[in-house]
Design a protein around this nucleic acid. Structure first.
Lengths: 214, 214, 214, 214
DNA sequence: GATGAATGAGACTTCATTCAT
DNA sequence: CATGAATGAAGTCTCATTCAT
């Protein structure tokens, strides 16, 4: 593998960014390579010099997105001591990252699924990776008595599933509000799912809750 | 509006069934009208006599699916007395119906989303319809003291979201097991979400639950 | 040939009228048989019962138009004594008839030409028929000294050609004024062509004209 | 706007030439893009690279023809001193040009008219352009006493109309004789229309003609 | 006689990919 | 390295015509 010249790297990034934009705008199937090339300010021939084809663009985009998410999640988790807080931090940063990259979000949760099983599989693998992360933390929390014993695998799937649903809804609606603003509500649900819910309202309940979540 | 000959009705159904199969197999974008016609044992022209275009096929399929689900859900709900049970029955029958019509499920939760905003909007509307149904029941349950006071709208969204996630995962994986077999686990999560979980195992837990949900 | 039942005659006329309208509106090539059937308030099958195909519709229309014109022209010519007046009367009634049947005019002078050589030939034959009529009258006028000796065939072609041009322009423009209103100008040109023009204005010119045309 | 490679220019010309041939052979409506591509020795995709569609081909052809005519007419007119001669030269060169490009002639006077109002309008505009040219010369001739006072606009329309008729007849008949050979007769009619006719037979008239045309 | 249904050839157009320059 | 040009397969859709009822 030859060392990438910096100019080539830049080109590739411009092309990937353009691909994300066009895939998000038109959908993978309706996206024209010509339009991506135009948006990247290059030519079709140039694009094909850097990427072997349209599929490779989507794949590269998914990998790039995965790397981006992994990095941010690791950093965010490292900053928390409590296992439940670490798991929550992971989801929160996923939400925040997608919130700031709407086109990536759309490509990741919508377009890839419809572009064929090969892409779907890659997205699934990445989701499973994060689900495993979450599960590990929940297991720790259960082991330390922080959470009541439960099917942590199921709970982790549910967490990722809820996140997925929220993101999916956000990108497919015309909602221009920040995705992050939904974290509050999501947060409450996540805690309920693992039986660590926050105080609803009444005083008596607060006592019981304290015993559980503290 | 011309009189529908019985022959025509049959053809339309055959075409719709074929469309569902091909959309599920190839995805909406890659599905060829010619293949649908072939699978419906008719000609391209014949297909276009009954449906104005490829989009109309998907739309008709979504409407057909929605009608199917609505009917089954109403029946299932009518058979239950308890509001929480009614809400659960709704989800359960949705799961069961999709489990028995995998192609419809795939079209409904995956293909429609990627086929364009128009289709996505129709699916969203149907999901919201069922979410509203669930919410109504949860409200009743809260009013009767059956459930602790909570944001029932959010909870209903979460229920539908979880269901969506399970179905989506099932259709996009190669999992050939019945979708229904996942209901057990889903059931537990749903109850947790509204704070009405069932007894995990021991007796002490039952006490705690009573104290919380009562 | 069986005797036509009156009901069938009516149907055929309704279909022909509808065909004229649709051919004029869409052009022959873009006219759909289905639209003609709809406009005739019958079905495609019914239309094909009365006419063997789309081409036959246009042909029948041309024949019908020719018959209409022939009849009116004969009547108009019979009412004139002077040969030049007779020739003029022929053109005038052609103009008037087309003016009152714009769709027929359009089909006759525009659509038929583009619908293929077979149709073009039929229109040409009809035009030649009227040119021959005109020529006969011009010959009489020359023989009687009413007109100066000239190439009457050429002059007749020119008369029909001018008429054709005026009609063609009228139907292809959006001009909603009566076609008849153009007769005045056309009239002057026709007379000039055969060297029998009317007094323009000045006296000197009148003298010169008299010397020439008398 | 991208730089035109010389290869591309050649292709475009080949395509346009092929389009003219096929439009003339089949008529616009029945001309298949595939046949044009074949005749141009390229592929359908190649054709669509150079022209956005079938309509654009016809439009480009009309524009190309208009440019051709304009150039030749200007040259021909510049070579004449007398206004009437200039006007005649214009028509003569139009006739000669169409005579040498029968397919262009057919497309221009027949196919465009039937291909839709948009094309018809373009052809009309070009005809009006030449009519205006003729009228300007006739006005000059009247102003200088070269012609008797008259409605020069009408006369110019008549000139163009006669020319149109002659060309139309030539292209729609199977007449393989040169179109130019008809100029003699047309010439006589044109002069009659503006009251500047040549000697029919007698001697006195000859004198007058000499005075006019010399 | 008449209707809705069906056919299938063929039309225009798009587009991922490859290639000559 | 990059570009414009070229390809050709495949797609959606139309429509004159025929047929079963």
């Amino acid at each position: 593998m030859p060392v990438q010249q910096p100019r080539a790297r830049l080109r590739q990034q411009r092309i990937l960014r353009a691909a994300a934009a066009v895939f998000a705008r038109r959908g993978y199937g309706d996206a024209a390579v010509a339009e991506i090339a135009r948006e990247a300010e290059t030519s079709k021939g140039g694009l094909y010099f850097h990427f072997p084809g349209k599929e490779a663009l989507l794949l590269a985009l998914l990998d790039h997105t995965a790397g981006l998410l992994r990095g941010k999640v690791q950093t965010a988790m490292a900053a928390q001591a409590d296992p439940v807080a670490r798991a929550e931090a992971a989801l929160q940063v996923l939400l925040r990252t997608f919130s700031r990259h709407r086109t990536l979000a759309r490509v990741f949760v919508l377009e890839a699924a419809a572009a064929g099983p090969r892409f779907q599989a890659r997205v699934d693998a990445i989701e499973q990776e994060f689900a495993a992360l979450v599960r590990t933390e929940l297991d720790l929390a259960v082991a330390s008595g922080r959470l009541v014993p439960q099917d942590t695998d199921l709970a982790a799937q549910a967490w990722i599933g809820m996140l997925d649903g929220v993101i999916r809804h956000w990108v497919s609606s015309r909602d221009r509000n920040s995705l992050e603003s939904r974290y509050e509500a999501l947060h409450a649900l996540l805690l309920r799912i693992v039986g660590a819910w926050p105080a609803p309202a009444g005083a008596g309940a607060a006592t019981a809750r304290k015993g559980i979540s503290a």
